Structures are given as C-alpha cells and as structure tokens.
Simulated scan of single mutants.
Amino acid sequence: MYVYILINPAHTVLYIGIANDLQRRLYEHSNGLGDAGKFTGLYQTNLLIYFELCSAPIQAIAREKQLKGWTRAKKEALIAVFNPTWTTIDPATWSDDL
C-alpha cells in the first residue's frame, strides 16, 4: 500500500491519499474517474510529489490520517526531505517494484 501526496500546478493545494496500485490511482485522479476525481479534479491536484510504501493497509490508513493531521508547514518539510525541488514524480520512470 502507498501513501501519497499530490499537488496542483500552482503548488497551493495538497492532497493526501492511499492506494494499493499507485499508478492506477494516479490515472484515476488525472482523468477524473470515480471518487478519485472529486477533490483532485476540482482543484487540479494530480501531480505526484511524494509517496511512501507501507507493508499493510492498516499502516497506510494510520499514516494517511497522521499526515492529514499535520500542519501545512510540517507536510512541506516532509516533502522537502524526499523531494527537495518538488519535482513531479513520473510513474513511467518507476521500476516494477513500485
């Protein structure tokens, strides 16, 4: 399971979610499919800038809740450690391990 953070092009909106298939979920966000497109479609929040792998769904859910409870500054600090330039992560460059 993955916990991930998306941003909009202006970097003004953060979206935190979980998925068992991150590439599929990003596709859903980008194409406004199902529940994935409600918030992210409204705010054009579909650029992946952070993700982490959790070994079990319960851990992913707990981590998602934890991150959602953080301040914007704390979320930005986490992203800066993982992705200092806030460069969009391209799923096409991932290995099959992700």
Results as ranks from 00 to 15, higher is better:
residue 24 R to T: 12
residue 83 N to P: 07
residue 77 A to L: 00
residue 67 L to E: 00
residue 92 A to G: 00
residue 26 L to C: 10
residue 62 A to M: 04
residue 54 C to G: 02
residue 22 L to D: 13
residue 58 I to Y: 07
residue 84 P to C: 08
residue 68 K to D: 12
residue 72 R to G: 10
residue 19 A to T: 03
residue 20 N to L: 07
residue 18 I to K: 08
residue 58 I to R: 04
residue 85 T to G: 01
residue 70 W to H: 00
residue 90 D to I: 06
residue 67 L to V: 09
residue 1 M to H: 03
residue 54 C to K: 02
residue 30 S to N: 08
residue 24 R to D: 14
residue 74 K to E: 12
residue 56 A to M: 09
residue 25 R to C: 07
residue 43 Y to W: 12
residue 51 F to L: 07
residue 16 I to C: 15
residue 81 V to C: 03
residue 21 D to L: 12
residue 67 L to I: 05
residue 15 Y to W: 15
residue 91 P to D: 04
residue 2 Y to T: 00
residue 3 V to K: 00
residue 73 A to V: 00
residue 65 K to E: 14
residue 5 I to C: 11
residue 57 P to Q: 08
residue 6 L to Q: 00
residue 40 T to Q: 02
residue 41 G to W: 04
residue 47 L to K: 13
residue 23 Q to S: 14
residue 44 Q to Y: 13
residue 97 D to N: 13
residue 33 L to T: 11
residue 27 Y to Q: 13
residue 80 A to N: 15
residue 25 R to H: 05
residue 63 R to L: 01
residue 61 I to D: 14
residue 15 Y to S: 11
residue 36 A to S: 11
residue 88 T to C: 06
residue 67 L to W: 03
residue 75 K to E: 15
residue 95 S to R: 15
residue 73 A to W: 00
residue 93 T to R: 08
residue 95 S to E: 04
residue 10 A to P: 00
residue 48 L to F: 09
residue 8 N to P: 05
residue 18 I to N: 02
residue 3 V to M: 08
residue 71 T to R: 01
residue 32 G to K: 13
residue 36 A to G: 01
residue 22 L to F: 01
residue 39 F to C: 03
residue 19 A to P: 07
residue 53 L to A: 08
residue 37 G to N: 10
residue 88 T to S: 14
residue 13 V to I: 15
residue 21 D to G: 04
residue 86 W to L: 13
residue 42 L to M: 11
residue 42 L to C: 08
residue 6 L to T: 08
residue 41 G to E: 01
residue 1 M to S: 09
residue 82 F to T: 10
residue 32 G to Y: 09
residue 72 R to Y: 12
residue 8 N to V: 03
residue 98 L to Y: 13
residue 43 Y to T: 07
residue 45 T to H: 05
residue 96 D to G: 14
residue 28 E to W: 14
residue 47 L to N: 09
residue 66 Q to F: 12
residue 96 D to T: 15
residue 11 H to Q: 06
residue 86 W to N: 04
residue 58 I to G: 08
residue 98 L to A: 12
residue 17 G to M: 09
residue 9 P to S: 02
residue 31 N to K: 14
residue 26 L to F: 10
residue 37 G to H: 06
residue 9 P to Y: 07
residue 90 D to F: 02
residue 2 Y to F: 15
